[in-house]
Design a binder for these strands. Structure first.
Lengths: 234, 234
DNA sequence: GAATTGTAGATTGTCGACAATTTACTTGAC
DNA sequence: GTCAAGTAAATTGTCGACAATCTACAATTC
């Protein structure tokens, strides 16, 4: 309707506003650990630093608040979220609930398309495990697999919730610093999930995701509790 | 630490900022149907109407966006969310996933306190069903029961997600206008849930919530699809 | 007449300034 | 020395104004 042009593959150029750019920068800064948990997020400082006014910074901060990276107290401002081991456990419990439901639907809605995407992502997981040692890339690839599952489920609400979970998970993992002793091991625990899905075996897929998540949780929380012993709160 | 006073039950007075008040007003306006779905949410109009500047209105709108009541398009502004029958189905599916997980934990964490709260809420449900015919009150009471379940689960993440679900559900129900043919019937389907929880019977509780939600969904979507036939989109 | 281009009005995006509130420090009383 | 009250600096909350962008309609071309 709107596009009647011959359309010679022009790629949509960045139409994202200042707010989203600020939000992206801030979340990178937080996730990468430049801004320590609990640290005050001064509007004026951030604004000055980025060369913008406070208004877009405020909006970006509100955005991050809704995605769980920062908290806000009235008349006191924004703070980088504190994460506790308990919160991490809670997060994984929520994640299991969501992803279990996702799998049920995913088996119903299984398509060639989804199969391809997930297979490719498993290969990607192995690639980054071998080639790349950057934690951020590894975690991102891991999350992308689960994100694709949500997308394939056909229920966009699942993706919405997962997006929040993903941000918070990444945040926590980045805090720990080094995550996987053996990245290929994580890549491998994704395979049983995909196989069970392909075989349309819901129960086995659920079992596989349960194992995968509990493995991830075990590794993460172990590291995390180690960290917590040092500091009073992380 | 901060409270060393004798503390003779002073109720915390409104320390909520202008933003939250605007947000509350807007969401009331949206949920009550004053602002039709799809309608533009003009910042200047709202600001003028409420006698405030645009800044707090913008922030409030962003808040509502994160809770799913409004959507935003860059450089075009905010719009009241459109709801479809499909979206409602998706919402109930998500809700089932969450509440099932909540029940599992709730059985583990069962306390006298929780028992009391839920019992009282069931009584409240019956009360509003008989005395009050106001839909908003009825739906609010219904939601409160489920909110209490989330609180009692001990996992605050569940409550966070449910809060969003609740807002969107209330929104959809208000759109329909008249919801329950028989409000006492809805009140009654809460009882088996509570009984199963009290008996620490996880499976039966899950079965009960599944029945309750599918009942609710059936009623809501039936009404909804009826409405959708009239208008092209609601 | 249909489609494209140009233009005016309205709306959102961003800004700098002022008011309200909090925080950190100093002062004073016991 | 400890606690309370008072005060100044810093920070957030709100505002009105200007710039960038979109929308709708008029003018122009084929």
């Amino acid at each position: 309707m709107t596009e009647t042009q011959p359309s010679s593959g022009f790629q949509q150029l960045d139409r994202e506003g200042l707010v989203q750019r600020v939000a992206k920068l801030l979340s990178k800064a937080i996730i990468s650990g430049q801004l320590a948990p609990g640290a005050r997020l001064s509007e004026s400082v951030v604004a000055r630093e980025l060369g913008v006014s406070r208004a877009p910074v405020r909006e970006a901060a509100r955005l991050l608040e809704s995605s769980g990276l920062v908290t806000s107290e009235p008349n006191r401002g924004f703070f980088v979220r504190q994460v506790s081991a308990k919160a991490l456990d809670d997060l994984y419990e929520l994640r299991l609930a969501i992803e279990t439901a996702v799998i049920v639907r995913l088996v119903q809605n299984w398509t060639e398309e989804t199969d391809k995407m997930l297979s490719a992502q498993v290969r990607e997981l192995h690639r980054v495990a071998i080639e790349d040692t950057d934690i951020f890339t590894q975690v991102e690839a891991d999350m992308q697999f689960h994100r694709l599952m949500c997308t394939g489920s056909g229920n966009p609400k699942f993706l919405t919730v997962f997006e929040q979970i993903a941000i918070e998970t990444e945040f926590s993992i980045m805090l720990i610093g080094q995550l996987y002793d053996d990245p290929t091991r994580i890549a491998e625990t994704h395979e049983p999930i995909l196989e069970a899905l392909r075989a349309q075996d819901t129960n086995q897929a659920i079992e596989a995701i349960r194992y995968h998540l509990s493995e991830a949780q075990r590794i993460v929380t172990k590291q995390f509790r180690l960290l917590e012993e040092g500091k009073t709160s992380i």
